[in-house]
């Protein structure tokens, strides 16, 4: 579905990403991992056309630069790491914006089926009860689910997530990952996400890329990529040893 070839991003003389290539097929959940400053979020910025890049990104054989923004949004949707809520929009209004790409040209912005899609997205994310609530009054988990609901309403083929459970409580972390896991099951869909938590990458990913300072260290099956062999040099520590140490506190309980 998605093909990235020789992707490079620089800010001035600083190379953030260098020569990244990968493909994404339907049904795949690609996990991008790596330490701080590896360029993980920059991959997503390039995909969302939020920064200049060299190389080529193509979607179903067509360069994404050649798509109009609203057509691209029908195929590719993004969840950013932070949500900037300043005004008291209602949850339903935020979710309904997800339909923009499908009814951009409708004078009053309401193509057939929009309402159903919005209600469906609200109920999928368990937000039906909160639909009329102001986004300023939501907890971090509810806010994150609101923007996931917006993505579901947008109904793209590929969703791209930047640290989707950053700073969320464990219960929400589990909810969010299960929501995505359910979403991906429908035909023709795929997910790319940046994750900090290496265990989550192994648990949910079907493919993984390990980045370090803008370059690919390893790519392939999550169990192989997210493994001692590659992680220890990249993080300069005994990663799995530390993970086991953390987990061992539970066995003592």
């Amino acid at each position: 579905m998605l093909k990235v070839e020789n992707l490079g991003v620089s800010y001035g003389d600083l190379k953030i990403l260098d020569g990244l290539s990968f493909t994404l097929e339907q049904g795949q959940w690609l996990m991008i991992a790596g330490p701080n400053g590896a360029g993980k979020s920059t991959v997503l910025r390039a995909l969302s056309r939020g920064c200049r890049y060299t190389g080529q990104i193509s979607l179903k054989g067509r360069d994404i630069k050649r798509f109009k923004p609203h057509i691209l949004a029908q195929k590719l949707g993004f969840l950013s790491q932070r949500h900037e809520v300043t005004y008291p929009f209602k949850v339903r209004e935020v979710v309904a914006l997800g339909r923009y790409a499908h009814s951009k040209n409708a004078l009053y912005g309401g193509a057939a089926g929009d309402e159903e899609k919005v209600s469906e997205a609200l109920s999928l994310t368990g937000l039906s009860e909160l639909a009329e609530k102001s986004v300023l009054e939501l907890s971090g988990g509810e806010l994150q689910r609101t923007f996931i609901a917006q993505l579901f309403a947008q109904d793209p083929d590929i969703i791209v997530l930047d640290e989707p459970t950053n700073s969320l409580d464990l219960i929400y972390q589990k909810q969010v990952f299960q929501l995505i896991e359910g979403w991906i099951k429908k035909e023709g869909r795929a997910v790319i996400s940046v994750v900090h938590d290496l265990s989550l990458a192994r648990l949910y990913g079907t493919k993984a890329i390990l980045l370090d300072r803008g370059r690919v260290v390893a790519m392939g099956q999550p169990e192989k990529v997210i493994s001692e062999k590659y992680l220890n040099p990249v993080y300069s520590m005994d990663v799995s040893g530390y993970m086991r140490e953390i987990l061992s506190t539970w066995q003592r309980g």
């Binding site: 939020g50 609203h70 057509i71 029908q74 900037e84 914006l97 997800g98 947008q154």
Partner: peptide, 21 residues
């Protein structure tokens, strides 16, 4: 108006939903 609603939720969000920012 709709695009302004999208901008009011952040430029990244506007781009994500398909606004020609």
């Amino acid at each position: 108006s709709r695009e302004l609603n999208a901008f009011a939720l952040g430029e990244d969000n506007a781009r994500s939903v398909g606004v020609n920012v």
